[in-house]
Nucleic acid binder design. Structure first.
Lengths: 140, 140
DNA sequence: ATATTTTGTTTACAGATGTAAACTTTAAAT
DNA sequence: ATTTAAAGTTTACATCTGTAAACAAAATAT
C-alpha cells in the first residue's frame, strides 16, 4: 500500500493559509503566521519546504517570488486526518466521540441540518449496539 | 500551561487493550497485539514503558508479573485527542468534517439519537454561518 | 554596477515515534 | 540449588517534528 504522508500540526497551519488564499507567496504565509504564532520566518520556510517534499504543496517557479499552491484538497486532507485519528478509537466509543465533537464545535445551521439528515439516513440501518473489537485480531 | 502529553498511534493500541480489560499484565497485552499486528514483544514492552513515563499507565508493582492499570480515562483521552485534531481545522469546515465522520463510522441507534438531540439543542443558538478564521491573528 | 534586501535552500539539533535487540532480574522447573 | 524461562529495563537507531540559523541566489535600491 502507498505510504500515507501525514501533515504535522505546524504544517496544518501553513496549509490552512494557502487553502484559504487559494495560493500564496512565502511572504504572505510568513506575515500571517508571524501574527498568529511566535515562529521565526526560518521556521515557516522549513515548513513550506517540507510540505513540498510531502507533495502537499507545489511552487510555481516561473517567476520570483514563487507562488505556492496546494496539491491536496482541503476537504480530502481533513477527511484523511480525521479518519486516521478515528481509526485509533474503540469503535464502540466513536458515537460518543462524535457527540462530544458536536457539543464542542461551532456549527452552522445548515451544517447542523445536514448532519441530522445524515444521521436520520444512518438510523435506517444502524445496529442497536456496536461491539468493541479492541481485543480482536482483525485489523482496523 | 501544562505540557499536554499525547498518545502516539502505537501507544493507542496498547491503551485500548488495557482500558478494555480494565487492567492487564504485559503478557496479556503482548499476546493480543501479536495477533493484531506484526510487532515484536520488545516493541510492545517499549510502548508500555513509554506510557508509564507519560503517566497514562501505572504498574502495580506489589507482585510479579506487574499488573498495568490506566491512569487516564478512555473517554477523556478520546476527548483530548479528537479536540486536539479539530483545533487544526478551519472552523468553517468542522461541520462537514463531523458529517463525514458520521457517514464513515458505525454508530448505534442510541448514539444516533443522542447526537441528534445534541444537534437539536445546538440548533437553538447556532449561527447561520461560521466564519473562517484561518488568516486571523487570534490563537486557534 | 554595487550594496542591500528578499526569497529560497542547506544544515542543525533536540525530542518524539516506530521498531527492536540486548541485558537484568525474578520466578518457575528440574 | 541450578537451569531455564518470563518479565522488566536499557540501549539503539532511523525517521519525523519543532524550531531555527547560516548560506546562496535573485531582485531591488542606490
Amino acid at each position: 500500500m502507498t505510504e500515507i504522508e501525514t501533515m504535522s500540526k505546524a504544517e496544518w497551519q501553513v496549509m490552512r493559509i494557502i487553502w484559504t488564499l487559494g495560493q500564496a507567496t512565502s511572504k504572505e504565509v510568513i506575515d500571517i503566521l508571524e501574527r498568529k504564532t511566535d515562529w521565526k520566518s526560518a521556521t515557516i520556510k522549513t515548513l513550506i519546504i517540507r510540505l513540498q517534499k510531502k507533495n502537499f504543496l507545489k511552487a510555481e517557479e516561473t517567476k520570483r517570488p514563487y507562488v505556492y499552491k496546494p496539491l491536496i484538497d482541503e476537504d480530502l486532507a481533513i477527511h484523511q486526518s480525521v479518519n486516521n485519528l478515528f481509526d485509533n478509537l474503540c469503535c464502540m466509543r466513536k458515537g460518543q466521540a462524535i457527540k462530544d465533537l458536536v457539543q464542542n464545535s461551532e456549527i452552522s445551521q445548515s451544517d447542523i441540518s445536514s448532519i441530522v439528515e445524515a444521521l436520520n439516513a444512518k438510523a435506517k440501518t444502524a445496529p442497536e449496539e456496536v461491539e468493541c473489537n479492541c481485543l480482536e485480531a482483525n485489523l482496523s
